[in-house]
């Protein structure tokens, strides 16, 4: 989407958007995913009291979390296609670990 639309939907001013692109919070392509990410950064900064350094840390950890979830999802999808019983056992083992 174009910058004006993006700013409107994310409730940001143009200067802040530019700063966030520079900081790498948001990519220049300004997709729906970037919008969702901008809204997250806005919540972090405005509502949750996270400062600029903190935003970097949070985004970095979140990206790692999503990568890990993606990797696990792929592993589980593979297992689901191969061996349902093993999948059940993995689920049970993970449920125990979460207690």
């Amino acid at each position: 989407m174009d910058r004006a639309t993006f700013c409107l939907r994310a409730r940001l001013d143009a200067a802040t958007l530019e700063a966030w692109i520079e900081a790498g919070y948001v990519r220049r392509e300004l997709s729906e995913a970037d919008l969702a990410r901008a809204l997250l950064v806005r919540d972090l900064v405005q509502d949750l009291g996270v400062n600029e350094e903190g935003v970097d840390v949070v985004l970095d950890l979140l990206d790692q979390l999503h990568e890990a979830r993606g990797a696990l999802r792929r592993v589980l999808a593979l297992l689901a296609g191969e061996d349902r019983r093993l999948l059940e056992r993995v689920r049970a083992a993970l449920a125990r670990g979460g207690e």
Partner: peptide, 8 residues
């Protein structure tokens, strides 16, 4: 929208 719905 939440970012988590886009992350994957």
């Amino acid at each position: 929208p939440f970012f988590r719905d886009h992350a994957t």
